[in-house]
Design a protein around this nucleic acid. Structure first.
Length: 979
DNA sequence: CGCTCCTAACC
DNA sequence: AGGTTAGGAGCGA
């Protein structure tokens, strides 16, 4: 080894586990031998060898070795008998693969290094030290943080799967310290997976900070007495020896005796025939082909190698007992024999669902046009087609169609693969032809869409989906408008929206109504690091998963749909839920334009201010700490500085929310005031100015996703990103809204209901003075104050008005003295007095509240003016605080929910009203009581009054409110100015 | 990596 | 005090 040489060290043991977990568990050779990990390992190793052969990458190895752990006990166990004591035995089907993997390394003609009593990491450390001493460079192929201590000017860590290279700067960025401090950091933090104890209460952030302040572990432990936070100080004193022990455990041994000298790791060309012989024996057809091509060896000329390892370890018998055919026969249609009342139908369908049998092996995979057409013909006869789209990401706006599944009757379901790729995920490496050889034929996407379009748009075929907005949007992007349709998610939501019942996702609904647990997406594609795109999953597996989803959807529809009529909720579903789907899909599709420059300027400005405040904070605190850690902040404020007014949160920590901080600030403490400012800036920067650009598409637009079934009350919610919580309260926050813009030649129009919930309360509770005030267009909060305190509205003290306003909101939220006191920062007794006075002045409110509670207790739900139900089963709970919470929510729901229903009606009508008037405004956003449109300049004038009218009249004719609904609408170049 | 806790943005 | 979603810290597997 000499200057300019480059040593590659592969952490083989870590590789094995990554390969094992990254691959589907049941990959077996034809004789039953489990080889999933071997396959993954070989693929990774080959990729590495191939990359190394590519001189354009710069880091061409001259030396190469794969290093393994040899045994479980090492010198560390003598230091600490608990070291790695919580490690469980490797999975049963992995054990026989260890020997095969070592065999694989030899087949690659690479040195395979291991040593009794030492971990792979120690060998890596030793080789690294020697190579660097000889003037060479080292690339350690691993992502294990235990190896970070080895990183240096000539040593990098290479995480192959994430394609990340870590040098000293990257280590510093990741852990907050340079590699030379990694050992100290690990000694403080510990490691649960290796059972290295560390010091309790110290995580990576705190450890990095401490090392920054005190230099190194020993100094820190010696000077622990100077630490300000009482608990941390005590832990560092009490656990000093434990930290020292931890340090010895995590320090790698650079002086491992080496059986294979560094010079012997010299890399030479792999022996193609030897490697191919091994790969053929393993039955890795794709990799064999790939390696043969790269090394220019004809695979068919090579004899399969004889692999000598322990006999195949067969898993449990995979053939489960088959379903009893007699039971399957009995699932005929029971409906016809009954007198068809709505309830009879519900009962019959429920019985049918209870008997449901799912046979995944009966699902079809449709791989050519004729099969697809034949299957869809069945839908023409039944008039019903459940369908589900599979896409490569979970967002309907970005995901590409990978396949579609259909069901025409319970148990009769099929999957249509459209854009699957090879399981290795490397689509481009294979020609179209070899892809087909590997995964079988697929109907070309365009041809399939041509067949699907007339069916999905056929007015005589009802399409049934679960969360149809998703599929509707995916199809909309392919110029298909799905109609007519039903949505099991929305049917379930109309029937069972509930505060305590879980959600309306398909897996939950299936378990709840069909007693069947479908294959989960995670089971199919894995999660986290092991996640694979659905397009790269085995088509047979995807067929089981996707066809089952269509099958489940169809069966859910059969159970749930009849309930709508039987329970009187058909109007809610048909008027407030289903018609909103296309409207929201188009809004999401359109998106809103955002000015990237404005956001980036704001980010810069916020960063600068943030930095300045951080310095002041450190100064005031007398030490560096992470102001973003409520834990650390609490210890500084109430521990170190001993400030008064400390409250504890549920889990016993110091509470440091704005309220607490502002009280302290009001007493003249500077630090809490700075924290409040810092938090605001951090929030605005982190949640908005920094992250919104990540959601922009190439055209500069952001497409949120609305959920129609996430709330109990009927409100929508918005996510990825949430555009319903863009700042508006503070000046700095509002600046963010200026980044939401209208393209040239258009304006943004914002229209919002004024005081809609209070108006609805006045109507529902029938409060004459409130109604009168709204009819007269008075200042409602001032009027409330005037009624309560007998003061004239003219010249009213703003403080008094503010209190009345808080009470008005409190009423909507199902007021409690505790809550009001909290809001106004007044004693609970005083708040109670206010409430009492309010009820005396407006007795109708108390009557309404009592009546609502009584109704909810009797029925278990409450209703909006439009018949939407929100269930609160826990209103009957014996736990008083749980019950009270549900009472308040039940009081709020009809008010919030009615407002939600009204704006839904406005949205559903809006597009047609605009079209009728010849206007081309596009609805972009909904923020609970506000709609935002994009309008051509010349149409603004005509659009404003139309939008106002549609919104104001939205309750009619179903509900005639006794108060007017006022709508304020404005236009401007950006959202801030239009709002 | 995934979960809980805490905090904060909106109506 | 009613209804939400998002991000960071810390912990445990």
């Amino acid at each position: 080894m000499k200057q300019g040489d480059h040593l590659f060290l592969v952490d083989g043991s870590a590789y094995i586990f990554r390969a094992y977990h990254a691959l589907p568990p049941l990959t077996r050779k034809s004789d039953g031998l489990p080889v999933g990990a071997v396959s993954g390992f070989c693929n990774m190793l080959w990729k590495l060898v191939e990359e190394s052969r590519d001189t354009s990458l710069g880091a061409v190895p001259t030396h190469f070795a794969v290093i393994f752990d040899h045994s479980s006990t090492t010198f560390r166990n003598e230091l600490y008998d608990q070291y790695k004591a919580n490690r469980t035995a490797p999975p049963e089907d992995l054990v026989p693969q260890f020997a095969l993997i070592r065999e694989a390394v030899r087949a690659f003609d690479l040195p395979c290094i291991e040593k009794q009593g030492y971990e792979a990491d120690d060998l890596i450390a030793t080789y690294t030290k020697e190579a660097v001493a000889a003037g060479g460079a080292v690339t350690i192929v691993s992502s294990d943080k235990d190896l970070m201590q080895l990183v240096g000017p000539n040593v990098i860590l290479y995480d192959q799967m994430k394609d990340k290279r870590l040098g000293p700067e990257e280590v510093k960025e990741k852990f907050g310290v340079y590699p030379d401090k990694m050992i100290d950091l690990q000694a403080l933090v510990g490691d649960t997976s290796d059972n290295v104890p560390g010091v309790p209460g110290i995580g990576p952030k705190t450890a990095a900070q401490l090392l920054e302040d005190y230099g190194d572990l020993e100094t820190l432990l010696e000077r622990a007495g100077e630490i300000k936070q009482a608990k941390r100080k005590q832990n560092l004193i009490d656990f000093a020896d434990q930290a020292r022990l931890s340090k010895r455990l995590v320090t790698l041994d650079e002086n491992t005796p080496l059986d294979t000298p560094l010079a012997d790791l010299f890399l030479h060309e792999p022996d193609g025939e030897k490697l191919i012989a091994f790969l053929k024996a393993m039955e890795f057809t794709t990799l064999t082909r790939r390696v043969a091509a790269a090394l220019d060896v004809s695979a068919s000329d090579v004899e399969t190698a004889a692999i000598a390892v322990d006999g195949p370890a067969r898993g449990p018998d995979l053939d489960a007992a088959e379903a009893d055919p007699a039971t399957a026969e009995s699932s005929g249609d029971g409906d016809a024999r009954l007198t068809l009342t709505p309830q009879n139908l519900v009962d019959a369908r429920r019985a049918e669902a209870a008997d449901a049998i799912f046979d995944r092996s009966a699902y079809l995979t449709l791989r050519d046009a004729a099969d697809l057409e034949a299957f869809l013909k069945e839908a023409e006869e039944t008039g019903i087609l459940a369908f589900d789209t599979e896409t490569d990401t979970l967002s309907a706006m970005n995901g590409n169609l990978v396949g579609v599944s259909f069901a025409t009757a319970p148990g009769r379901a099929a999957y249509v693969p459209l854009a699957h790729i090879a399981p290795s995920g490397e689509a481009d490496l294979l020609s179209e032809k070899s892809l087909e050889e590997e995964i079988g034929p697929q109907i070309p996407l365009e041809a399939a869409l041509k067949i699907l379009k007339p069916v999905l748009e056929d007015p005589a075929i009802l399409k049934v989906g679960q969360n149809t907005k998703y599929d509707y949007l995916v199809m909309l992007r392919h110029d298909i408008t799905v109609a007519p349709f039903d949505d099991t998610l929305l049917i379930s939501y109309a029937l069972d929206a509930s505060a305590s019942l879980a959600g309306h996702g398909m897996d939950e609904l299936s378990e709840r109504h069909l007693g069947h647990k479908p294959i989960s997406f995670k089971e199919l594609c894995g999660s986290g690091r092991n996640a694979r795109p659905i397009a790269a999953c085995e088509i047979a597996k995807v067929t089981e998963y996707a066809a089952e989803d269509a099958d489940v959807t169809l069966r859910l529809w059969r159970v749930l749909k009849p309930r709508l009529t039987a329970e009187g909720l058909a109007a809610v579903y048909e008027r407030l839920e289903r018609p909103l789907v296309p409207v929201l899909a188009r809004m999401e599709h359109h998106g809103i334009m955002v000015d990237r420059q404005i956001l980036s300027r704001l980010s810069g400005r916020f960063a600068q201010k943030q930095g300045a405040i951080e310095a002041e904070i450190a100064d005031l605190a007398g030490e560096e700490f992470n102001p973003g850690s409520p834990k650390q902040l609490g210890e500084i404020l109430f521990g170190k500085l001993g400030l008064p007014g400390g409250k504890k949160t549920k889990s016993g920590q110091w509470s440091t929310d704005v309220k607490v901080l502002e009280e302290l600030a009001a007493e003249g403490h500077e630090l809490p005031a700075k924290i409040v400012d810092w938090r605001q800036l951090t929030k605005l920067k982190g949640t908005y100015t920094d992250s919104l650009p990540n959601h922009m598409d190439a055209a500069g637009r952001i497409h949120t996703s609305y959920s129609m079934a996430s709330t109990t009350t009927g409100r929508l919610s918005s996510s990825e990103p949430n555009l319903q919580n863009i700042p508006v309260r503070t000046e700095e926050g509002r600046a963010i809204r200026t980044a939401f813009v209208a393209p040239k030649g258009t304006k943004l129009v914002s229209a919002d209901y004024s005081q809609i919930e209070l108006r609805i309360l006045a109507h529902i509770a029938d409060i004459a003075p409130l109604k009168q005030a709204f009819q007269d267009g008075l200042d409602i909060h001032a009027m409330t104050a005037s009624e309560m305190f007998g003061l004239p509205v003219k010249g009213m003290d703003p403080m008094v008005r503010r209190r009345a306003k808080a009470i008005n909101f409190g009423i909507i939220y199902g007021i409690s003295a505790f809550g009001l006191a909290n809001q106004l920062a007044i004693p609970r007794e005083e708040a109670g007095q206010y409430i009492k006075r309010y009820f005396e002045r407006f007795p109708g409110i108390r009557d309404y509240m009592d009546a609502t509670k009584a109704f909810a207790k009797e029925h278990g739900y409450v209703e909006t003016l439009f018949g939407r139900r929100a269930h609160y089963p826990d209103i009957r709970a014996s736990n008083p605080s749980l019950r009270a919470f549900n009472e308040r929510a039940a009081i709020n729901a009809p008010i919030q929910g009615t407002a939600a229903d009204i704006i839904r009606r406005a949205m559903i009508r809006m597009e047609e009203a605009l079209a009728e008037t010849g206007l081309s405004a596009k609805m972009l956003l909904q923020v609970h009581d506000e709609l935002v449109f994009e309008v051509p300049d010349e149409e603004v004038e005509a659009t404003l009054p139309l939008v106002q009218r549609v919104m104001s009249d939205a309750a009619r004719p179903r509900v005639i409110l006794s108060v007017p609904l006022e709508v304020e609408a404005k236009s401007a170049d950006n959202w801030e100015a239009a709002h």
